[in-house]
Nucleic acid binder design. Sequence first.
RNA 1: GGCCCCUUCGUCUAGCGGUUAGGACGCUGCCCUCUCAAGGCAGAGAUCACGGGUUCGAAUCCCGUAGGGGCCGCCA
Length: 479
Amino acid sequence: MEVRTRFAPSPTGYMHIGNLRTALYAYLHARKNEGKFILRIEDTDQARLVEDSVKVIYESLRVTGLEHDEGPDIGGPVGPYVQSARLPIYRQYAERLLAEGHAYRCFCEKHEKQEDADEEHDGPILGYDGRCSRLSEADVQANLAKKMPYVIRQKIDKEGSTSFNDFVYGPITVEHKQLDDQILLKRDGYPTYNFANVVDDHLMGITHVMRGCEYISSTPKYILLYKAFGWEIPEHIHLPHILGPSGKKLSKREGSVALSDFLNKGYLPEAVLNYIALLGWNPGTEQEFFTKADLIAKFDIARIGKAPAMFDETKLAWLNAQHVKALPPEKAHELFLKFYPEKIVKGFDARKLTGYIQGKVEKLSDIPNMVSFLAGLDEKYSAELFVHAKNKTTLEGSKAVLKDLEAILSGLPSWDYAAILAAVKAYAEAKGAKLGPVMWPLRIAISGQAVTPTGAVEIAELLGKPETLRRISVAIGKL
RNA sequence: GGCCCCUUCGUCUAGCGGUUAGGACGCUGCCCUCUCAAGGCAGAGAUCACGGGUUCGAAUCCCGUAGGGGCCGCCA
């Protein structure tokens, strides 16, 4: 049988990193098995609709390369793929449950969740007591005649229990007395998640239901629905949560949770994908660097773990550096260009610069700080930088070295890496010195900072002869 | 409060009855070196949450306890 998985986000306005991982796993499992990956929009909560948020979903899937085979934008054989466009379908199936005694109309007032007033949350929270299930047919008809608004609830016999076998968590059993007569169809005619999900997953031929583990407790209710309809029960694969740094569920309050947050910080989409794939799954080998193609080849739902994982941005950063390094030079340059100050793009051999720093960029957003000294020398740097114990450099010594270098470099017929290096080396040798005591003052002089992303020769080459000499004379003036 | 789930270095994890409990990030040191990184090497870091069993033998199997998380919405 063809594997069919789906990603079924609600349009909330941003792509939560946990949701993205769910999408990733569903995508990988489909690709791995040459099945289909379906996108379905779950927009049944009319009160929470967020403008344009469907676009965020499309864009997130596009940028991460999780392309879907069926969905609202591209259609498919079992559409529509937006739940708000499927209302008659849900109505029809709800009526069927009504007719067959698996559901009933409920005319009660709204029974909304009360926020636990900051008291302890002890004291039982009571669910719906099922009173409308005991209404006589005559009462129901009378209420209908009065045009009383109603919802349709699932009728659950409180005797017995229901079990299912979760692919990740194993056998789960819940006593029916724990299960509420949940609402299937709301007053406004929209289905709840609890109903739409079951109906759609069946109608869309989903073979593997993947979702966050917060649904484990509710799954028996869904199983009961499948049974009431006489439908085959798909494989259930619940995923452990991703936790924030404090050990609590990853949330906006703790910092970045949206894909866009990480992208804006300069993380590569492929690095984010690689990192979250490893949060709850591992290949069983020691491989940690994965391209999307690697993931498709190696992914296996059998190796998904049960324990929640904390999101560690430090490790993401490391993985990101690995992906930056692996970028083809052309691609790296294209990406880096967006982070270079205008002056560098215009006045420097930026392509060469990219080549020099590609190996040491962690996040793309680090680039501006890394290269700003090239665009302009901050002449107020401290002269103390010239003093370096290991290279045995002093203020006076540096001044002498720079004066010599000024003369040598100004007489250089060609200005490229090899020529500059050769000249400096020859000078050091003539002085009977090692390279360090010569390079150190030069690098400080032309960068104005102790730490630079490349060596002095690369910097001089990039700056060009006039600017290099100008900076050297500025330094001499300071000393 | 009821029910469900989880628990191996700080973090991500390997392990599926017999291992010096392995790897990665981070951290420390050394090497390399014109700085910082990168890279290479080395090191510190886990009484496998705790307590009972079962077994010749348990991180691995069973039962409790504790801690954490989740659900109990006309939200998903």
